[in-house]
Simulated assay, not measured.
Amino acid sequence: MAPQPVIRVVGSLNIDFVTRTPRVPGPGETLQATSLTVHAGGKGANQAVACGKAAFISQTQQDVTVDMIGAVGKGDPYYASLLKPTLEKSGVSTTGVEEIEGVQTGTATIIVDEGSGGENRILVVPGANHEVKDLEQLLSVVTRKGDPDVMVLQGEICRLMVLALLNLFNAPERHTCIVFNPAPVFSEGIPIEALQSLGVLVVNETECLLLFKVVEELNGVEVPREEDLDKAHLDRLTKHLHDLARISIIVVTLGSRGVYYSTDISGQDGFVQNRGLVPAVKVKQVVDTTAAGDTFVGYFATALARHLAATHELAGFDVAGAVSKANKAAARCVQRNGAMESIPFGYE
């Protein structure tokens, strides 16, 4: 029997303090909220849980191995009683999570505005997530038992570590496909050089416009506004990114407008280009959008890992099919409360 494909998620682990409120208070205003709950969270951990849950083809069987790599504060009771068990129940190995003495686990304060359909505002304190700065030690964990088939990266850990991993694993001698979701975008930005030969880039509308700013400054073209961001603009940006950085797959999540994708994948007949827009899945009621984007990334990465395990190359990957399934998972997620607990299992 062939070994299972392996996904390693290098990213943040947080404790989420979620306050639900009828509206967001104004400056200097005290407002009575609806509730306060504590959840396991962090973009890295959310995406690891999404990968782990997506890998369940039945209630007892996973067809993809998922490892979480990151850091928490040593002795944190929330990690032992909440975060770690949540990851493990979702089919995610936590052996790559380091417990660091003298620092706190990352936290996120999430305000869910019930009056605007569950939109959220998030304040993050990085804590241990920004304390992983030893590249050699990190590499020893990432490459334990060999390189993974897929590595998932986001923007809630140290920028230098993310850029270093992109540089190392995008090299042709590596056999790992990186799925990079630069969220939140680093304040110093993402240099185009860091995206060279990237496998998959996943961004939302806001992150897409920040990339537009970087690319269009090079080309002297005006950057569109978010409300004007249409398929023609996306075609232009993705063409630039394919040409400048040789990114194979670019995915832009557009909320209620669906998901745009563009591919430029090397195959036997040269580079195969394909573009499309997958419509959004309609839902009866949006309850909480907290982990929708992370659910999408996790389901997409899992579909990619399955493909790579079978073919060992990006050529032939059904991007539209992966986007469609990830869309459906994200749609189910937003109809539930919370972050990790709202992410559906693959067999659902």
Rank of each mutant, 00 (worst) to 15 (best):
A2L: 09
Q4P: 00
V10I: 14
G11D: 07
S12L: 09
D16G: 08
R20W: 01
T21C: 09
T21G: 02
R23E: 00
T30K: 05
Q32K: 07
T37H: 02
V38G: 07
V38D: 03
A40K: 05
A40C: 12
A40D: 04
G41L: 09
N46M: 06
N46K: 05
Q47N: 08
A48Y: 06
A50L: 04
C51F: 05
C51W: 08
G52Q: 10
G52F: 10
F56S: 01
S58V: 13
Q61N: 12
M68L: 13
G75H: 09
D76P: 08
Y78T: 08
A80R: 14
S81D: 14
L83Y: 02
T86M: 07
V92Q: 10
G96W: 07
E98H: 03
E101T: 07
T107A: 05
A108S: 15
D113V: 02
G118V: 06
G118E: 00
G118H: 01
E119F: 05
N120K: 03
V125I: 10
N129I: 02
K133Y: 02
D134S: 06
L135G: 10
E136D: 15
T143P: 03
G146N: 08
D149T: 13
M151Q: 05
Q154T: 14
G155Y: 06
G155N: 12
M161V: 06
M161Y: 07
L163R: 11
A164N: 15
L166C: 09
R174Y: 01
H175L: 13
T176S: 11
C177H: 00
F180A: 00
N181I: 05
N181C: 10
G189I: 01
G189K: 02
I190K: 05
Q196E: 12
S197E: 07
V200C: 14
L201N: 13
V203F: 02
E205C: 10
T206V: 15
T206F: 11
T206W: 03
E207A: 07
C208D: 06
L209K: 09
L210H: 12
L211I: 09
V215Y: 14
G220Y: 11
G220W: 14
R225W: 05
D228H: 11
H233S: 07
L234M: 15
L244F: 13
I247E: 10
I250T: 03
V251G: 11
G255M: 12
S256R: 15
R257P: 07
G258F: 00
V259N: 09
Y261S: 07
Y261G: 06
I265S: 04
I265W: 01
D269I: 01
G270L: 08
Q273Y: 13
N274P: 03
V278F: 03
P279V: 08
A280I: 02
K284D: 14
T289I: 08
T290H: 01
F300T: 13
R306L: 11
L308E: 05
A309H: 03
A309R: 14
A309C: 02
A309M: 03
A310D: 13
A315C: 05
G316N: 15
V319N: 11
A322F: 08
K325E: 14
A326L: 12
N327M: 13
A330Q: 02
A331G: 10
C333A: 06
C333E: 01
G338L: 07
G346Y: 14
Y347A: 04
E348C: 04
